[in-house]
Amino acid sequence: MTERTEETVAPDLLYSEAEDDLRAAVRALLGDRSDAPTVIARVESDTPYDPQLWKALGAGIGVAGLLVPEKLGGQGASHREAAVVLEELGRSVTPAPYLTSAVVATETLLALGTEDGPVAELLGDMAAARKVAVLAVPFSAAPETVAATVTGTLDGTVSVVADAATADVLLVPTGDGLYAIEADAPGVAVEPLVPLDLTRPLATVTLDAATGTRLADAEAARSAVRRGLLAGAGLLASEQLGLAEWCLTETVRYTRERHQFNRPVGSFQALKHRMAQLWLEVVSARAAARNAADALATGSPDTPLAVAVAQAYCSKVAVHAAEECIQLHGGIGMTWEHPAHLYLKRAKADASAYGSAGRHREAIAELMELPAP
Score class of each variant (00 low, 15 high):
residue 338 H to W: 09
residue 340 A to Q: 12
residue 348 K to I: 06
residue 353 A to N: 10
residue 333 G to P: 05
residue 348 K to L: 14
residue 336 W to R: 14
residue 336 W to D: 15
residue 342 L to I: 08
residue 339 P to T: 09
residue 348 K to T: 08
residue 337 E to M: 11
residue 321 A to K: 01
residue 321 A to L: 03
residue 356 S to A: 07
residue 334 M to F: 13
residue 358 G to C: 02
residue 348 K to S: 08
residue 331 G to Y: 12
residue 331 G to Q: 14
residue 351 A to N: 06
residue 358 G to W: 05
residue 330 G to A: 07
residue 356 S to L: 02
residue 360 H to G: 03
residue 335 T to R: 11
residue 339 P to R: 09
residue 346 R to F: 05
residue 348 K to E: 09
residue 330 G to W: 02
residue 350 D to G: 05
residue 333 G to R: 03
residue 343 Y to M: 07
residue 345 K to R: 15
residue 327 Q to W: 08
residue 357 A to M: 02
residue 359 R to Y: 08
residue 352 S to M: 12
residue 333 G to E: 05
residue 325 C to S: 09
residue 347 A to E: 07
residue 325 C to P: 00
residue 320 H to D: 12
residue 324 E to S: 11
residue 346 R to I: 00
residue 343 Y to G: 06
residue 359 R to C: 02
residue 354 Y to K: 09
residue 355 G to L: 00
residue 359 R to P: 00
residue 349 A to N: 06
residue 337 E to R: 14
residue 335 T to D: 09
residue 329 H to V: 00
residue 327 Q to I: 10
residue 355 G to Y: 02
residue 340 A to R: 07
residue 355 G to K: 04
residue 339 P to Y: 06
residue 338 H to A: 09
residue 327 Q to Y: 12
residue 335 T to Q: 12
residue 358 G to F: 03
residue 350 D to Y: 09
residue 347 A to Y: 07
residue 345 K to W: 13
residue 350 D to E: 12
residue 356 S to R: 04
residue 325 C to W: 14
residue 348 K to M: 11
residue 352 S to L: 14
residue 353 A to R: 14
residue 337 E to Q: 12
residue 355 G to C: 05
residue 348 K to V: 10
residue 342 L to D: 04
residue 329 H to S: 10
residue 335 T to W: 08
residue 350 D to M: 12
residue 350 D to T: 13
residue 330 G to P: 01
residue 353 A to Q: 13
residue 357 A to R: 01
residue 335 T to C: 11
residue 323 E to G: 03
residue 327 Q to N: 10
residue 337 E to D: 15
residue 342 L to M: 10
residue 350 D to W: 02
residue 352 S to T: 15
residue 333 G to M: 03
residue 357 A to D: 05
residue 348 K to Q: 13
residue 347 A to C: 09
residue 335 T to I: 11
residue 322 A to E: 01
residue 334 M to A: 13
residue 345 K to T: 15
residue 344 L to C: 04
residue 326 I to P: 00
residue 332 I to Y: 07
residue 344 L to R: 06
residue 346 R to W: 02
residue 321 A to D: 02
residue 345 K to S: 15
residue 324 E to H: 08
residue 320 H to W: 04
residue 346 R to S: 11
residue 322 A to K: 01
residue 332 I to E: 13
residue 320 H to S: 14
residue 337 E to H: 13
residue 329 H to F: 14
residue 352 S to C: 09
residue 350 D to S: 15
residue 324 E to A: 14
residue 358 G to K: 06
residue 358 G to D: 10
residue 356 S to T: 15
residue 327 Q to M: 12
residue 359 R to I: 08
residue 347 A to R: 06
residue 323 E to P: 02
residue 336 W to C: 10
residue 337 E to G: 11
